[in-house]
Design a protein around this nucleic acid. Structure first.
Lengths: 145, 145
DNA sequence: AGGATTTATATCGCGCACGATTGTTTATTG
DNA sequence: CAATAAACAATCGTGCGCGATATAAATCCT
């Protein structure tokens, strides 16, 4: 009963600290690319599909425009992404990878393998755990409405 | 092979977004206590053991003094915590719950149950998943050295 | 057509989170 | 015992992340 309020039994604390731990493992790898961790995720999403809008990217990454706009401006300054208002709908900003941004993908391709190695698990196990955490996220997102 | 660089297959992205999702579920609950999520974790750690030092708390929460010092000052301003240099060792700052800080525990006791409910899982399943995520964190922390 | 509503992005303020650095106190070592 | 090193907390600069708000464009509605 009194275990209820012990930090080590909190799923939230586990996720919170695991997220920081992942960040620390990524940091030295991403430093070589000149990217932060959230910037890297944005680039991955754009490598997956170029020409997305700010809103579309935010939906994928679960981030607000208040977070993305400054981040994307930094990626623009770094020369990896261009931001341009759509001709069809002037409200929308379309994101396109620059040539340099596209080239960066080759340097980034080895990173997931490094993380998997650092996790000390095999691919099957990681995939299973990944799916479980996604299921948790979806349940939580559903409950917020 | 080309799945390697897909966002949905990233364990890191799952953890990253799950962490944000948890934050969003916690926010309305913590607002009633006047705490942010990291402040709440610090309070949980102090409810568990009062009189910890800044360094000791940081070790538990995996946070640096550069993060904790301002956070603890805010908890002090809120009237939940006192910060005082130890007489034995003037380098160390000892954290003590105020009476109000102790009382807050009663209001917080129901929160873990709300989160568990929002996760849509039973206690056994949550505990298992929590242990798996902790194991991932430990493996990652070990790899960083 | 024209005013109201909705949609998309941007801005602002606040609170983390960290690396690098600083200043003070304690411990160590020659 | 004095010089040096180590430990601890605090400060500073940068980059998220979000809620609230602003701004502008598109859509809706008589």
């Amino acid at each position: 009963m009194q275990d209820q309020l012990k930090l080590d039994n909190f799923i939230c604390f586990a996720v919170y600290t695991a997220s920081h731990a992942l960040n620390r493992v990524y940091k030295p790898l991403l430093d070589t690319l000149g990217l932060t961790y959230p910037q890297y995720l944005a680039m991955v999403a754009l490598w997956e599909r170029d020409g997305q809008t700010v809103g579309g990217l935010g939906e994928k990454l679960f981030l607000e425009s208040s977070t993305l706009t400054p981040l994307l401006k930094r990626l623009e300054t770094a020369g990896y992404v261009s931001r341009e208002r759509s001709k069809d709908d002037e409200r929308v900003v379309v994101l396109r990878l620059t040539d340099e941004g596209k080239r960066l993908k080759e340097k980034a391709i080895g990173i997931p393998g490094c993380i998997a190695a650092a996790s000390g698990r095999d691919a099957v196990d990681l995939t299973r755990l990944q799916a479980e955490i996604v299921a948790l996220r979806e349940a939580l997102n559903k409950s917020v409405v």
